[in-house]
Computed example of a mutant assay.
Amino acid sequence: MTWIKFAIWLLGIYTIYYAALIFWDYLRTKRGDTESDKHELTFVEDILPVKSPIDEVSASGKESAVAFSGGVSLKQLFNLAREESVEYIKSVSF
């Protein structure tokens, strides 16, 4: 038996196996289509809102030195690095 024959036999066996599994699933779902046969799990949790510690810090009046202005493009990031507005630890080629 050559490797090609072996691969073809193996491919055929796997094809038949998976086709049989698909066919078996198809037969099982066709048989039990009634509404009472379907099982559905539902979970209900009583979740109470919790005050986050971030809200408490900002409400206490402590301001951070870091200002967040949103995302910047790569070109703006390099400009900020040139102006030494951002701290970077590795060398950046401009």
Rank of each mutant, 00 (worst) to 15 (best):
residue 1 M to S: 03
residue 2 T to A: 04
residue 3 W to K: 09
residue 3 W to C: 02
residue 5 K to T: 13
residue 10 L to F: 10
residue 11 L to D: 04
residue 12 G to L: 03
residue 12 G to W: 01
residue 14 Y to K: 07
residue 14 Y to S: 14
residue 16 I to G: 07
residue 17 Y to V: 12
residue 19 A to V: 06
residue 19 A to H: 01
residue 19 A to S: 05
residue 19 A to M: 10
residue 20 A to S: 15
residue 20 A to L: 07
residue 24 W to Y: 08
residue 25 D to F: 04
residue 25 D to G: 12
residue 25 D to Q: 15
residue 26 Y to G: 15
residue 26 Y to R: 10
residue 26 Y to D: 03
residue 27 L to F: 14
residue 28 R to Y: 10
residue 28 R to D: 04
residue 29 T to M: 15
residue 29 T to C: 05
residue 30 K to L: 11
residue 31 R to D: 11
residue 31 R to M: 10
residue 31 R to T: 10
residue 32 G to D: 09
residue 33 D to Q: 14
residue 33 D to W: 09
residue 35 E to Y: 07
residue 35 E to W: 13
residue 36 S to A: 09
residue 37 D to H: 02
residue 42 T to H: 08
residue 43 F to R: 14
residue 43 F to S: 08
residue 43 F to V: 06
residue 44 V to E: 06
residue 44 V to A: 03
residue 45 E to A: 11
residue 45 E to K: 15
residue 45 E to D: 13
residue 45 E to C: 15
residue 46 D to N: 09
residue 50 V to A: 02
residue 52 S to L: 12
residue 52 S to T: 10
residue 53 P to Y: 02
residue 53 P to N: 05
residue 54 I to T: 07
residue 55 D to L: 03
residue 57 V to C: 02
residue 59 A to V: 05
residue 60 S to N: 03
residue 61 G to Y: 00
residue 62 K to F: 08
residue 63 E to F: 04
residue 63 E to W: 12
residue 64 S to E: 04
residue 64 S to D: 10
residue 65 A to K: 12
residue 66 V to N: 13
residue 70 G to A: 01
residue 70 G to D: 01
residue 70 G to W: 00
residue 70 G to T: 02
residue 73 S to R: 01
residue 73 S to K: 00
residue 74 L to R: 12
residue 75 K to D: 11
residue 78 F to L: 06
residue 80 L to F: 12
residue 81 A to P: 00
residue 83 E to W: 02
residue 84 E to A: 15
residue 84 E to D: 15
residue 84 E to P: 02
residue 84 E to M: 09
residue 87 E to N: 14
residue 88 Y to V: 12
residue 88 Y to W: 05
residue 90 K to A: 11
residue 90 K to V: 08
residue 91 S to I: 15
residue 92 V to R: 06
residue 93 S to G: 04
